[in-house]
């Protein structure tokens, strides 16, 4: 329990977000374009961080489906900033050894003629430490 809360506080610190302000209205999940891709929807995310359930989130593929499009941040009536929380969990996970989501060796198979390098730079920034 203590470790869980330490991890949660780390996520809150890195994100600079404030999940306790959440009033459980579901506006974030109503706005999320990736809702159907996610095991844990944004509102669930926020609640899990409040209750220290970080490891479950780190194990979930949900964190790689967030687009950082900020629709949830823009529309949240409580200023909770769910997208920043998702990012913080992704960062906490990827800062561990061997937890990169994307490997440079995967790239040749993915890359096509048209792909802008910006997409590759972004993907590495998002999914690799």
């Amino acid at each position: 329990m203590k470790k869980d809360m330490e991890l949660a506080n780390e996520v809150i610190r890195i994100s600079g977000a404030n999940p306790i302000r959440c009033m459980k209205c579901g506006k974030c999940s109503a706005s999320c374009p990736s809702f159907n891709e996610m095991e844990y929807a944004p509102h669930k995310f926020v609640d899990m961080v409040v209750h220290g359930r970080i490891e479950e989130l780190m194990e979930s593929k949900s964190i790689f489906h967030c687009l950082s499009c900020f629709a949830c941040v823009e529309r949240c009536p409580r200023g909770v900033e769910p997208a920043k929380i998702v990012e913080a969990i992704r960062v906490v996970k990827q800062r561990q050894i061997g937890e990169n989501y994307l490997d440079a060796n995967d790239i040749p198979a993915i890359v096509d003629e048209q792909i802008p390098q910006q997409a590759l730079v972004s993907a590495f920034r998002k999914f690799k430490k």
Partner: peptide
């Protein structure tokens, strides 16, 4: 003003496609 799925276009094309189609 909805997201096309830019960041995940490298790692998850099928998700990007759903957004683009909408």
């Amino acid at each position: 003003n909805e997201c096309c799925g830019g960041y995940i276009s490298v790692t998850n094309k099928s998700q990007a496609t759903k957004n683009v189609d909408k």
